[in-house]
């Protein structure tokens, strides 16, 4: 089973990298970019019988730092 885990900064947490990317887009002349937030995509290939609880545990234990990040699991 293939999973895609999207890890994103929580709303309100400052994202200096996103800000820098936004400025770079502006510098390249792209108009109308209101905001940029950068996250991570982690792809996992796991056994088909892996439970939702186990996947959630992986996310909370290692893949995301829930102090600053949210995560969302998508089954491919």
């Amino acid at each position: 089973m293939k999973l895609r885990i999207f890890v994103t900064l929580k709303p309100g947490v400052l994202d200096p990298q996103g800000k820098a990317i936004g400025k770079a887009l502006q510098g390249l002349g792209f108009q109308g970019v209101n905001d940029v937030r950068q996250g991570k995509l982690i792809e996992l290939d796991v056994a088909d019988d892996t439970t939702d609880a186990a996947i959630d545990e992986m996310c909370r234990t290692l893949l995301a730092n829930t102090v600053i990040e949210n995560y969302r699991v998508e089954r491919a």
Binding site: L14, P16, Q17, K19, A20, N65, V67, I68
Partner: peptide
């Protein structure tokens, strides 16, 4: 902080 022995998190420096 990542180990949960201290609270909070250390993020990329403002200004990168």
């Amino acid at each position: 902080t990542e180990a949960g022995m201290l609270p909070g998190a250390l993020m990329r420096n403002a200004g990168i």
